[in-house]
Nucleic acid binder design. Sequence first.
DNA 1: AAAAACATGTAAGCTGTTACATGATTGG
DNA 2: CCAATCATGTAACAGCTTACATGTTTTT
Lengths: 186, 186
Amino acid sequence: MAANASPLGYALLGLLHQREETGYGLQKFFEDSPMGAYSSSPGAIYPALKRLERNGLVVSRLREDGPVKRSKVYSPTPDGTEALTSWLKSEITKHDVETGMDVLMLRFAFYGLLGDRQATRTFLAALAERIEAYLGTLEDTQALLERAGADVHARLALEAGRETYRAQARWARRALNELEGAADER
Amino acid sequence: MAANASPLGYALLGLLHQREETGYGLQKFFEDSPMGAYSSSPGAIYPALKRLERNGLVVSRLREDGPVKRSKVYSPTPDGTEALTSWLKSEITKHDVETGMDVLMLRFAFYGLLGDRQATRTFLAALAERIEAYLGTLEDTQALLERAGADVHARLALEAGRETYRAQARWARRALNELEGAADER
DNA sequence: AAAAACATGTAAGCTGTTACATGATTGG
DNA sequence: CCAATCATGTAACAGCTTACATGTTTTT
């Protein structure tokens, strides 16, 4: 039963698996990368790191060597690795697809850490399926709106949602194909 | 200086502009519509309605007529209409595009309430522009990742983001065209 | 010498989640 | 009569935002 974290917590944990970092370093990374959606401000990052440490998912040590004193470098513990892994591999729920595509993409971005191509393919296949299933229900909703003669704006907004999910399903299928292709090479 | 609300608050306020409703009615609506992303549970909706009422954006009255007693029906006040309007018309920021496309779509869904085609076109044009600008920075990020020889998964995740925003930009442009076309009819 | 960047944190306030608690009304 | 649906709420807890507070090191 691995301890769990918030999306921001997992984002930090994943980054720390790529290289150990200070709170400030992580903050800078968020600032100028699209991952900044999990923002953010020191007021979110420092407490999140403390929580990770309290839960034993990361450890910190003081950096002496570097140019700047008084900075704390965080790195993941075995428990942290386990927590990240089980988060990455956890089932993709309907709820995830409906309200957290960004988090699913964050998860995918860290799949390289698993070093397990089959796991990646499983994830992408499940993701594509789930999205496609949800697209079906969106179609039903649209039919309903159409019949009810809803406002153009509402209908267009729904159309935007469908286009967005369609693009993501297409992406997942394409990524899957690319990886299947890569698997054939040797 | 209109009072402001949370995204859920605005979602509720917008819906109440279409027809007065009880907390339960709103909850049901969220449950089986894609707007359920602004969820949710009674534990979010009832407090949100109370906040709207406290801020003078909605009023409630007890329903006697209907089949069920003891239910409170909410409807917007003039202040509520003003708050909604100014939210709808507020500038689309870079930050909105980077972290809140869903909220922008929610805003668009309510544009019918303004009854102002020009405003809708202005919104869509600004949205398309902002998204396209952000797509430019995503391209730069991708070039960076490419040069740094980043992990396939990270690159694919970024690609997913680009595809998503591209789909949304295309949607905005298409919607704009459709509305321009409609404006020519008389 | 000053400005910018490095670096870490705290506090108040808001909002959301989950879970619980309660009761009336309607349909089978 | 019993289950489902209608209907409203509260309480504990978690997490994020904004703003503040502080001090060092490097660059100009």
